[in-house]
Write a protein that binds this DNA or RNA. Structure first.
Lengths: 209, 209
DNA sequence: GTCTATAGGCCGATAGAC
DNA sequence: GTCTATCGGCCTATAGAC
C-alpha cells in the first residue's frame, strides 16, 4: 500500500507494525491467556500477517514473555509520597493504600496478576519481574517510611518490614480475591475506600502512639 | 484382559477406570494447566485409551471443571475449633492461622489457587466453588467466633466481618505471593509460624482488651 | 519488511470391532 | 466398557515472491 508506505517514512515510524503487534498481543494475551490465543488471532487483531510477527519476534513464547514483563514493569503506581519525610501518618497510609488497592482490583491489575500466576511455572522470569517490580518494591519503600516514622516517635513497631507486609496484605483483601476469581470484576470505589480505611485504622490502633 | 475383568467384578470396582482417569487428570491439570494438558497425555497417565475417557466424560472442559471443583471442595482445613465457645483467643487465632497459612503455601493449595485464578474467566463455576467453599466459609466462621468473643468482653471490634477479613488477609502474605509466582515454592514452616504469630499479635494489639 | 501460501504436527473427538 | 485406528481441524512456524 503506497500511502501507508509514505506515511511510514513521513513520520519515521519504522517501528509502527511492531508496535501494533505489541499492543494487539498484549490485549489478547492479558485477556485470554497464553494457551488460548493463537498467532493467527494476534495477526488479525494487529492487522498484519503472521509472517510479519515472526519477522520481529522469535516465537510465541518470546512475544508473550516480552509483553507480560513490560506490563509488570509499567503498571505500578507512583509511590513518591513514601520518599518524603513522614507527615500525617493516617493521611499517608490512606493515600498509598488507595492507589495500591485500586490497582489490585483494576482490570489491568487483575489480568496481569492472572497471567503471572498462571504462567510462572513455564515462564519463571515473569514471577521475578512481577514480584521485584511491584510488591517487593512497595513493601521496601513502605518499610523504610515506617521506620523513619518510628524514629520520629510516631509509631511503635517491632519489625518495620513485617508491619509493612501486614498493611499491604490487608489491601490484598477479599475484593482482590473476588476480582481474581471473576465473582466481582469491578468492586465499587466506596467499598475499596472502606477496606483501606479499615486497614489504616487497625494499623494505627496496633502500632500508633 | 481376563484377570483384570475378574478383579473388577471381584471387588465390585465398576468405577475403577473412571477413578484412574480422575486421579491422572487431576495430577496433570493441577500441575500444568488446562491448555497445556492433552487428552492423549491424560490417557497415557491413566493407563487407558482416549476413547475410554470420552465414555465417562463429555469433553475436556467437563473433565477439567469436575476435577478442579472437587479439589476446591476437598482441600479446606478443619475449622471445628471455631465452632466451640471462645477460650484463649491467642491460642485459637494461632491455631486457625497456622492451618490456613500452611494450606495457602502447600503444593496443592498453590496449584488449586493457580488453576482457579487462571481459568475462572472461561470456567466461572470454578471461582464460585473455590470462594464459597473456602475463603468465604472460613471468613464467616471466624467472624462469628470473633463476635462471640466480643460478646464475652474479650475484644472490642467495630465490624466482626471486617476484622476477620483483616486477620485472614494477613495470612495471605508475601509467602503466599512468592509461592504463587514460583519464587519460593516451599517456605520454611518456621517462617510461616513467624507470620502467623505476627498477625495474631497485631490483631490482639488492635482489638484486644 | 511485508505479504500469500503451505508445510508439518498435534489435538479433540469419534467410528467400529470386540 | 474398552480398545485401535483415524478423521478433520487448527496451530506454530517457514518458504518464497515482491
Amino acid at each position: 500500500m503506497e500511502t501507508a508506505g509514505k506515511l511510514d517514512r513521513a513520520v519515521g515510524a519504522r517501528a509502527m507494525k511492531p508496535q501494533q503487534i505489541r499492543e494487539a498481543a498484549a490485549r489478547l494475551f492479558l485477556a485470554q491467556g497464553y494457551g488460548a490465543v493463537s498467532m493467527d488471532a494476534v495477526a488479525r487483531e494487529a492487522g498484519v500477517s503472521k509472517a510479519t510477527i515472526y519477522a520481529h519476534f522469535a516465537d510465541k513464547a518470546e512475544l508473550f514473555a516480552d509483553l507480560v514483563k513490560e506490563e509488570c514493569a509499567r503498571q505500578w503506581p507512583d509511590t513518591a509520597m513514601l520518599e518524603s519525610e513522614p507527615g500525617d501518618l493516617r493521611e499517608a497510609l490512606m493515600a498509598v493504600g488507595m492507589v495500591y488497592a485500586e490497582l489490585l482490583v483494576s482490570p489491568k491489575g487483575v489480568q496481569t496478576f492472572r497471567m503471572v500466576v498462571a504462567e510462572s511455572p513455564r515462564f519463571p522470569e515473569l514471577g521475578r519481574a512481577f514480584y521485584d517490580g511491584g510488591p517487593r518494591l512497595i513493601r521496601d519503600k513502605l518499610a523504610a517510611y515506617l521506620a523513619r516514622a518510628e524514629a520520629q516517635g510516631k509509631l511503635a513497631l517491632g519489625d518495620p518490614r513485617l508491619a509493612a507486609q501486614q498493611f499491604l496484605a490487608m489491601l490484598r483483601c477479599e475484593h482482590h480475591l473476588r476480582a481474581l476469581t471473576g465473582l466481582d470484576p469491578a468492586p465499587a470505589p466506596a467499598e475499596i475506600a472502606r477496606v483501606v480505611a479499615g486497614a489504616t485504622d487497625m494499623f494505627l490502633r496496633a502500632y500508633g502512639r
